[in-house]
Design a protein around this nucleic acid. Structure first.
Lengths: 343, 343
DNA sequence: ACAGGGCCTGTAAGCGCTTGCACTAGCCTT
DNA sequence: AAGGCTAGTGCAAGCGCTTACAGGCCCTGT
């Protein structure tokens, strides 16, 4: 591997000047910089990250914590993050946090402490207090997507409002018997997303003067299959037939769609269904949904953390612990699974 | 951050001994090792990766190249890789290779040359010759999953056999009019996977003495929607109605299932459908498929590269360039979408 | 009893960069 | 005209580890 000395020799300057020319720090005259750059290019020189990190304390590397890689939502956020970081010349080191406490501990106490990253992005991941503390103790910028996290700077959608928007759409179409497919209590580990969405659903009904009816709530597990089963319950039950369903995720909404079809319901004529998330399959199923733009979420978080790292006054944003989460945008996408209630 | 000197002082030994005790290289007596370990634990010491890398040339870090993060198959392979690497104490640095040539070049010429990784895993990614050469020039172990790659050590399933197995299953059930949903030619960039699967399909038919009928082939784009459209073509066409379909991916098979349902076919009574891959949605749709265990593929590749890196005789495996790809296992999973042909 | 050979440990020389400091030269103030 | 600045460059001291080398010790075989 070619080293900085060879570049310095070829360009006829000291290694200090090469370092300054290539990193853009300190003063280097135009012609000198050009000579150095051309020498580096000729030799195919790239700074050694370990030597550079050791000397400067900077890594050009961000640690990203994710709970799963194989779920659509997280993949999208991660995609956005990866693209944005790469654009700005940063590497991304991936840490998958499973439920295995022992392994999680290793991540926080060993992997993240190797001084390999300049900042940490926690994507949609529930952290216990110890983990949060250990994260803060790294002394690095940390940004969480999805929250709230009491002690971390957080970017999150307002799940209550999200669900409220979905529900209001159905109300606006004249529906009154609206069911909700949410999550079983044990799924509520995830920042209470299901709970918040259920709250939004109920608040929206309340706004319209409609009392919540427990028999129109059915828990599921955020999968297509779960949504399918829940919808079968909801639609197969004697009495109380809803004319519309708000599912707390697009996967569950799609499951509901398939269930409805199997039971002979026409969608949207006999039943309206709205989902939440903006899942890629939504388009095929013509699913009306509230999109939360996960790709953009990832990009935004990546840019935010790099801004924080590269900010001259690094102190400012991090002191703002416990601040209100920054709210991310979402949008109702009306497609073909919701329609005005005919009576 | 606590440094090795503090640990040395607390344990009453030299930094050299601390390094040896903690890394397991060289000889350290039992009691000394114990003292060092306890001192390290007390102080919460973790070796600085940059200092360690600079001094030793080892990074405990593997670069992983993927084409997409948001497709189920790649996510699964990556999941497996991440889990296996973490188990063995390695970090994983992720590089997403898009179609943007310029950006790809940066990855090969800058990112990967920062001497940050000890090896590279190329997951299901088509590399042009220049890229392959640059990869080899890194002087690091490289393993590709999915191939073949002429110049790289490769782990891959035999796509011809995969499709052959799927087709043979239908033949074994008595089907003779079997259609195939494969890929449009422009999708063949991916190692000719579609082409190979089509070959397997046709070979299997030939084995049974059945001539290939072009009207029973329909191209699609590997998505549910594509499979749906293709199946509609196949099943809606006058004359030549197939009694079974082999789809080159589970997503397309699911699309076909939905199309069949919409056209009033009962599956599997009127139509058998078999997919390929082992997609998570397969279970819900009761899809018969040939599983290729992507998670295990990722784990296996990770273990293989670590073995190569940690092997005492590092020379051996890498000389074997251009060797035959190691073939990965696959297995027919019979579920509910295929049945014996009733006549 | 003594050479030979492990085992265990310390000393110190780097690994390849970055950056504080020193210095020079030119330019701007006053 | 003198002092003060700033830009541009080089020198050299680290950054926090790893490891070759050397030395001391103890065990073994003959």
């Amino acid at each position: 591997m070619v080293s900085i000395d060879e570049v310095a020799r070829l360009a006829g300057v000291s290694t200090a000047t090469v370092s300054r020319a290539l990193s853009g720090r300190g003063h280097v005259s135009g012609p000198t910089r050009a000579r150095v750059e051309s020498a580096a290019k000729t030799l195919g020189y790239v700074v050694s990250s370990s030597a550079s990190s050791l000397a400067s304390g900077r890594n050009r590397n961000i640690g990203v914590l994710v709970p799963f890689l194989d779920r659509w939502f997280f993949s999208m956020v991660l995609s956005g993050t990866a693209a944005a970081l790469m654009r700005r010349g940063y590497d991304i080191t991936l840490y998958t946090l499973t439920a295995d406490r022992e392994q999680r501990r290793t991540v926080f106490e060993t992997f993240l402490r190797r001084q390999r990253v300049d900042g940490v992005l926690a994507i949609s991941i529930e952290l216990d207090e110890g983990e949060t503390v250990r994260l803060r103790e790294l002394g690095l910028p940390v940004i969480a997507i999805g929250g709230p996290h009491p002690l971390l700077r957080t970017l999150a959608v307002d799940d209550v409002e999200l669900a409220r928007l979905a529900t209001a759409h159905l109300l606006g179409l004249g529906h009154r018997e609206i069911a909700h497919i949410g999550a079983s209590p044990e799924f509520d580990v995830d920042f209470h997303i299901p709970t918040h969405r259920r709250q939004g659903f109920e608040l929206s009904l309340a706004d319209a003067g409609i009392p919540a009816r427990p028999e129109l709530f059915e828990p599921a597990d955020f999968t297509i299959e779960g949504g399918f089963r829940a919808a079968k319950q909801l639609l197969g039950r004697p009495g109380a037939r809803p004319t519309a369903i708000v599912a707390a995720s697009d996967e569950m909404a799609i499951g509901a769609l398939l269930a409805a079809r199997e039971l002979g319901y026409r969608v949207p004529e006999d039943l309206s269904v709205v989902g939440i998330d903006g899942h890629e399959l939504g388009e095929f199923f013509r699913l009306t949904t509230v999109d939360q733009f996960p790709l953009a979420q990832g990009e935004r978080a990546a840019d935010a953390i790099l801004d924080e790292i590269e900010a001259p006054d690094a102190a400012a944003p991090r002191t703002a612990q416990g601040e209100q989460p920054t709210h991310l945008p979402f949008e109702l996408i009306v497609r073909g699974t919701t329609a005005r209630l005919e009576r």
